[in-house]
Design a protein around this nucleic acid. Structure first.
Length: 956
RNA sequence: GCCGGGGUGGUGGAAUGGUAGACACGAUAGACUCAAAAUCUAUUGAUCGCAAGGUCAUGAGGGUUCAAGUCCCUCCCCCGGCACCA
């Protein structure tokens, strides 16, 4: 694969050549004045790091390149731009370590990454290149920030924030992953600091609604993940009066249907109401101590303690349940978060796992108000039959000596049950249980061991011909001794008594639909029932279903329906040097004053020392000449804001700038915006789902509301890619030593092979392990295509023509679906077919070269030129396929007997059922398998299958 | 725990409910060669059989269907996200 004296394929002699020609001819430049339909293809612009671009960058960039080259050949005006997301910690950390200014190292890294991108043959429009650290770019980042400020969506507040001790800066919620810094992995601490926030919560509803209604082409998992992150939930706000006080506790709950089951109320330790109740609280010292403790505990500690709940009762304080006027105790506990809902919750231990755990620990009452509906799927209600309600008991009678449980095997029904029966009037459930035990089993000395959850079971009672709805009380009884009465003859005739072990019961198909509850009880598992069901113990709301009861009970107690979100405001300031300065000035008299637009950009000053202080102050605070400025409003002595913006600021609008990158008057003109946006196809990683992808939607929606951009949603379609793993199937990392450098692959195999192989490895959305073994196959494929030039015939065979048309169709469709791996395999099939001796014409070869060109642009461009063409293949027209040539003249139809393939027959296309049957019945094997059996049924699927259904004749 | 996505030959992976394993790697045999590499040809899920042809196979177990990798139920394992969000 080195020299090519005989015209053999040699990537090293052709790739650089074509990259240069494409650049010179401006092949990839998008045209803002074009009348053609547009396609805007976007990739997440890279962060230029010292290590250069890696395999992980290649995946989306290649995908975008294939698609944009395809659309260009289809006649679209295509925008496929590139830029640099160059502010941020790595450059700054590198600068600190090596004493190089980040501006310099960034420029070097950009140059290297650009060299790499060019060597891969990616067709970016370099004339629109942007860089987030360029003052002409960040001027507009600052300008947009000022718009947020103007509309009250940027604000300063002191609060407890996530603090990364290693990077010495605050972090947004989205940047904390499992309690660790998303960037460096250090455990995040809490710190109280004055900080800037962007009010993303003001757009919570719009951001969810957009996902639900405006983004049909986004993959469902990504939408779901964002939706869950925003965490919209509908619930009720309900007030509990405090006994002997004017104060009230307003709780937020999504389960107002369980209000009658409240046995206590919990406040977050930080809740201000606790201070207001100080005079009533008799154990204030304990309360204070707990609050101090809770403040010290980090999120990690709170979860690391295996969710063991802690709390303190507010002695002397009672809350009044508005549903039934019951007085219940009030606690503070750190399992209630101050930052969500109202910071106060009603506790329903019977129907909430957390409340259940807390109640168990502090020995609080558990009151059941919801019972599970258990519908017997094998024996459902029959429509039109009478519905009969009844109260019943189910009793698992256990012998404590051997742990066996008494079961009843019914003689006239195929049933195995526990002791069971109806509750008669005047009886309570335990009395009913005792009576049934005595009647059905004869045991007289038994005691109640455990009362389990109730249930409502629904089934058709065939022996009574009615639909039954039974409210069952489920219990476990233990034998005290084996004293037994004789059973009545009548009773003995109904069932046999069998003692079974728990394991035997599990293997037996027991008749009760309540088995999950009973088995749980017998195994000693204690949990709350958190599902929806039927209300009990809830006075006039009894027998309602949960979903209906929520609004009814909320209304009954004068509560209101409200919406809450998990999403928090976006912590927007960083205590670091290498970022956009936040363009405001603090004035002792005027307060926060925005920098006037005419003074933008606020330039990042050149400094010698940019080490973060770690005190929560930015290193910019030390640059007195920069910090001290007159107040733009009153002229007095002001100080610049010294915090900078986070990494995510510049990327929150960069795709808008691409449409109009040289504009000095606006961040982008409405005309180019209206033409180019929304982005048609956005290739990127899953990891940005709740970071960049969420932030940039927020910025776009805000700008849209200001009428500054043309579309509400920025990206019409998102195409995620799986990560690229090392050859060992592990994540590529220096410490593992499994990093593959794209530069090496380009050198030894060529960019075309690398591009094809990357995409041939697997589906674009799935993670793939980069392996060097398979790459030779892809290289061989290109060589075969290359060598095909020597096989061109005068005339193409109809078979080749047909396959070519099929291949064009398949490749076109697969590119539009981002199914690059199957597109490539279809092209391999075609080349294989030609090499098997099927005649290919020059025109056919040229068509094939065209559809291969987005994947392997250099080799195909060279072949195209070698065929004597003077145009550039990259600007040629995508071949059309001829619909009429797609159908095969003949098809192979599988012949089945009873669903098993016994033969296949070659038929002309669209052959009728009769013709096919005739051919099939001429096959000896088919006849053998039919063996004279009568054919009950024939299934015929045109051009595919013929199935004879001939069941075994039995006992004939 | 909850929410997503997966589990198919020795390997990466194909399959609108309609002949499972396309395409590629690897392996085996052969051709060419003094030899090797490259290239080309053939074979390649397991298993029984001389063959014709069977049987078993898509994480496990059930079910629906003439027909299930694909649809339904139960369970196991891997990956990603969230994680006391009331």
């Amino acid at each position: 694969m080195t020299a090519s004296p005989d015209g053999a394929y040699d990537h090293s002699s052709i790739e650089g050549k074509w990259q240069k020609i494409w650049a010179e001819k401006g092949v990839f430049a998008a045209d803002n004045g074009s009348k053609k339909p547009k396609k805007y293809v976007l990739i997440e612009f890279p962060y230029p790091s010292g290590a250069g671009l890696h395999m992980g960058h290649m995946r989306p960039y290649m995908a975008g390149d294939v698609v944009s080259r395809y659309f260009r050949m289809k006649g679209f005006n295509v925008l496929y731009p590139i830029g640099w997301d160059a502010f941020g910690l790595p450059a700054e950390n590198y600068a600190i370590k090596h004493k190089v200014h980040p501006r310099i190292s960034t420029a070097e890294n950009v140059a290297n990454a650009k060299r790499q991108l060019l060597s891969w043959g990616v067709g970016f429009d370099w004339s629109r290149e942007v860089n987030t650290t360029d003052p002409s770019y960040y001027k507009w980042t600052q300008w947009i920030f000022l718009q947020f400020l103007k509309h009250g969506l940027a604000y300063e507040a002191e609060g407890i924030i996530n603090w990364c001790p290693q990077d010495k800066t605050g972090l947004a919620n989205e940047e904390v992953v499992n309690g660790k810094c998303e960037r460096c992995g250090a455990t995040v601490e809490k710190k109280k600091l004055r900080q800037w926030y962007l009010k993303i919560t003001a757009y919570a509803d719009e951001l969810v609604d957009g996902l639900l209604h405006d983004l049909p082409e986004w993959p469902e998992p990504i939408k779901l993940q964002q939706e869950n992150w925003i965490g919209r939930s509908e619930g009720s706000e309900i007030e509990f009066k405090i006994k002997d006080s004017e104060k009230k506790i307003a709780v937020f709950t999504t389960r107002a249907d369980t209000l009658f089951g409240v046995t206590y109320v919990v406040l977050a330790p930080e809740c201000p109401l606790v201070d207001e109740l100080k005079s009533k609280i008799k154990n204030w010292k304990d309360v204070e101590k707990y609050r101090e403790q809770a403040k010290k505990r980090t999120d990690i500690e709170r979860t690391a303690e295996d969710k063991e709940k802690t709390g303190v009762k507010l002695d002397g304080v009672f809350a009044v349940n508005p549903a039934n006027n019951e007085e219940v105790p009030v606690f503070i506990a750190d399992y209630v978060l101050a930052t969500y809902g109202t910071g106060m919750v009603m506790a329903v231990p019977a129907h909430d796992e957390r409340d259940f755990a807390f109640a168990k620990k502090y020995n609080l009452p558990i009151k059941e108000v919801i019972i599970e509906r258990m519908v017997d799927a094998g024996n459902p209600h029959v429509p039109g039959k009478e519905t009969v309600f009844r109260d019943a008991v189910i009793v698992a009678l256990r012998n404590p000596k051997n742990g066996k449980i008494l079961c009843l095997k019914w003689k006239k029904q195929p049933w195995t049950t526990f002791v069971m029966g109806g509750i008669e009037s005047g009886e309570n459930p335990v009395e009913a249980a005792l009576r049934e035990i005595r009647e059905e089993t004869g045991y007289v000395h038994v005691k109640l061991a455990k009362q389990l959850r109730d249930a409502q079971s629904e089934f058709f009672a065939a022996h009574k011909n009615v639909n039954r709805v039974a409210h069952t009380r489920n219990m476990i009884f233990d034998l005290v001794d084996e004293t037994r009465e004789a059973l009545s003859d009548e009773e003995s005739a109904i069932h046999d008594l069998v003692w079974m072990t728990l394991d035997e019961i599990k293997k037996t198909k027991m008749t009760h639909s309540e088995m999950p509850i009973l088995l749980g009880g017998l195994e000693g598992i204690e949990t709350a029932f958190t599902g929806e069901g039927i209300l009990i113990n809830s006075s006039q709301f009894n027998n309602l279903v949960s979903t209906d009861a929520v609004s009814k009970i909320t209304k009954f107690v004068g509560g209101k329906m409200v919406t809450k979100y998990k999403l928090r405001d976006w912590l927007f300031s960083r205590q670091r040097y290498w970022g956009e300065p936040i363009p405001v000035i603090h004035c002792p008299t005027c307060g926060v004053v925005p920098v006037p637009e005419k003074d933008l950009p606020v330039m990042l000053p050149d400094v010698k020392e940019y080490e973060p202080s770690g005190t929560g102050e930015s290193p910019l605070a030390n640059v007195a000449s920069w910090v001290n400025v007159p107040c733009p409003k009153c002229g007095g002595a002001g100080k610049r804001e010294t915090n900078t913006m986070p990494q995510w600021a510049g990327s929150s609008w960069y795709w808008l700038r691409y449409t109009d990158p040289k504009n000095e008057k606006e961040f982008a003109g409405m005309k180019p915006l209206a033409y180019w946006t929304p982005v048609d196809l956005y290739f990127g990683g899953f990891e940005h789902t709740t970071l960049h992808l969420l932030y940039s939607r927020f910025w776009n929606q805000f700008l849209y509301d200001r009428k500054l951009v043309a579309t509400k949603e920025p990206y019409a379609k998102r195409v995620p890619h799986g990560i690229v793993l090392g050859p060992d199937g592990e994540k590529m990392s220096k410490s593992r030593g499994n990093v593959v450098n794209p530069d090496d692959i380009v050198k030894s195999y060529g960019a075309d092979t690398m591009r094809l192989h990357m995409q041939f490895l697997g589906p674009h959305g799935a993670e793939v392990a980069w392996n060097d073994q398979g790459i030779v196959g892809t290289r061989r494929f290109i060589e075969r295509v290359w060598n095909t030039k020597d096989m061109i015939a005068q005339k193409m065979s109809p078979e080749t023509d047909q396959l070519l048309n099929k291949t064009i169709k398949k490749v076109s469709e697969d590119i539009e679906k981002s199914a690059f791996n199957t597109a490539i395999s279809a092209m391999m099939v075609f080349v294989k077919f030609v090499h098997e001796g099927n005649a290919l014409s020059r025109a056919g070869y040229e068509s094939f070269i065209k559809i291969l060109s987005p994947f392997a642009p250099h080799a195909t461009e060279e072949i195209w030129a070698n065929l004597g063409n003077t145009t550039l293949l990259a600007t040629e027209t995508w071949p059309a396929y001829d619909e009429s040539k797609l159908a095969s003249a003949t098809v192979t139809i599988a012949v089945q007997v009873n669903g098993k393939v016994r033969a296949s027959v070659e038929m002309k296309s669209d052959a009728s059922q009769e013709e096919t049957e005739k051919a099939a019945l001429a096959d000896a094997n088919v006849v053998k398998w039919l063996a004279g059996k009568p054919i009950a049924k024939k299934i015929f699927v045109k051009n595919r299958i013929l199935n004879f259904v001939a069941p075994e004749s039995r006992g004939a």
